[in-house]
Design a protein around this nucleic acid. Structure first.
Lengths: 243, 243
DNA sequence: CCAAGTTGTCTATGATACTAGACAACTTGA
DNA sequence: TCAAGTTGTCTAGTATCATAGACAACTTGG
């Protein structure tokens, strides 16, 4: 045995232990401020060497989820942002409601051409010129999500510059005469963060992300913009209210 | 360097490559039936040894996502189950609409007591007696999700046995005189599968899961049952339609 | 048939993960 | 003060990960 879990999943043992503890923090088994079990006890419950536990705790400590106190124990400090999935809720409102300060930043804006997928979402032809806008959103100083937004370059000429100036998708659309719009079907799935997003989200490689795809339409149902967002799963919790 | 990514995330290199390719399959860069780039080419794009790529492909092949053909290439075969998040859609309908055959199984039913969290969800007092029902759902023979369901043992005496007999939560509630009910707010987040769920979902350790928490209420708004479900992220895609 | 390109299999080597044991440094409570 | 329990830091040894190179087996297109 020694290294790796029995199935050899490609995930280091210490990582599994770290994930297990993090899960415990996320679902409330260990509340903020709580003292974790001793390293020896954790080692026994996971059937693992104490050094492996220490490595797991070190990883969690580096991310600020726990804090070790010599001679005393290891303590929890963490919590997730509640993120309602509604048609007209703004990121800034959600973060503000959590008592934290929202920030947004433009990473990059560039020209692009529509793939078959994008063309279908936006009601265009494959190969149609698009503007691609890459943004990141933060709560206090913690990155929450990165988004890639596509718009038709013909319907919204110079959209990249307008967004850079206004820093708001709503204002950008207003600039082109779109008064009101609503969100269509939203698709949610999960995956593992890639290297680029990991760097932007300040997330270690291999962490889970929530992937959200959505297209906004005007009141006549015509597609305006389509978005592909990646959320740091450990920092948010989506709330869906359906009726 | 040699092993591990620069940040040493606890995830093996071959696993990162495998995830990268899987991501490509999931988001449509590689469609079902497509031929993947050659092992050498993949090795170059990921800056990795060909043997590492081979290991990644072997892992994907074992999960049935790709199929290698000697002398020719490696080909894709995969797709996700589209899973609408609505108030009254049954799992069996969703799976049936996908042209696959739904199955459900009772893993375990046992007595439990309410934690503070569960009590709050169900409108009970902490320590109140509960029935805990553990179930698994499959499409064809592929496990899609495992769910833990809690009900008040006082409001629904013998619920475990009733469920074992009916195999349906709707029928169980009918048995106790509940004619209609609706789903309240649904909370979605993501995480990494633990050992127990991994075995049940036939999923390698370290894979991402979608975690869904929801409470069903009767028409008067009184909480009936609360559920904690874990979906194999690579096998589903949630669809949220909000308006 | 042949050449180019593909996957399959072997050997070998260095770096890293995990285990194991021992002891130091520190905190807490009796 | 002292004992028990905690985290911090060493030393090793074994298994696995990752790289490197070479060649076999097979498919495809000219």
């Amino acid at each position: 045995m020694s290294m790796q879990d029995t199935a050899s999943s490609g995930v280091a043992l210490w990582r599994l232990v770290a994930d297990g503890i993090e899960r415990g923090i996320a679902d409330g088994r260990f509340a903020a401020g709580d003292k974790l079990p001793g390293e020896m006890e954790i080692a026994e419950t996971y059937r693992v060497n104490r050094h492996t536990v220490r490595r797991a705790l070190a990883a969690l400590a580096e991310r600020g989820l726990v804090r070790a106190e010599r001679g005393s124990g290891t303590y929890v400090e963490a919590q997730r942002l509640a993120y309602p999935l509604r048609s007209r809720t703004r990121f800034s409102e959600i973060v503000g409601a959590d008592g934290r300060e929202p920030h947004g930043r433009l990473i990059e804006a560039s020209d692009d051409v529509a793939t078959r997928e994008l063309a279908r979402e936006l009601g265009l032809k494959a190969g149609a010129p698009l503007v691609r806008i890459e943004t990141i959103r933060l709560a206090d100083r913690t990155p929450i999500c990165v988004s890639t937004t596509w718009l038709s370059a013909e319907l919204f000429p110079g959209a990249g510059n307008v967004f850079a100036a206004t820093r708001s998708m709503t204002k950008l659309l207003e600039h082109y005469g779109v008064r009101d719009y609503s969100r269509g079907a939203t698709r949610i799935t999960a995956g593992i963060v890639d290297a680029t997003d990991a760097a932007r989200l300040d997330l270690p490689l291999g962490r889970p992300i929530l992937v959200v795809d959505a297209t906004d339409h005007d009141l006549a149902g015509k597609p305006l913009v389509t978005k592909h967002s990646r959320f740091a799963a450990e920092r948010v919790e989506f709330l869906v209210e359906n009726g």
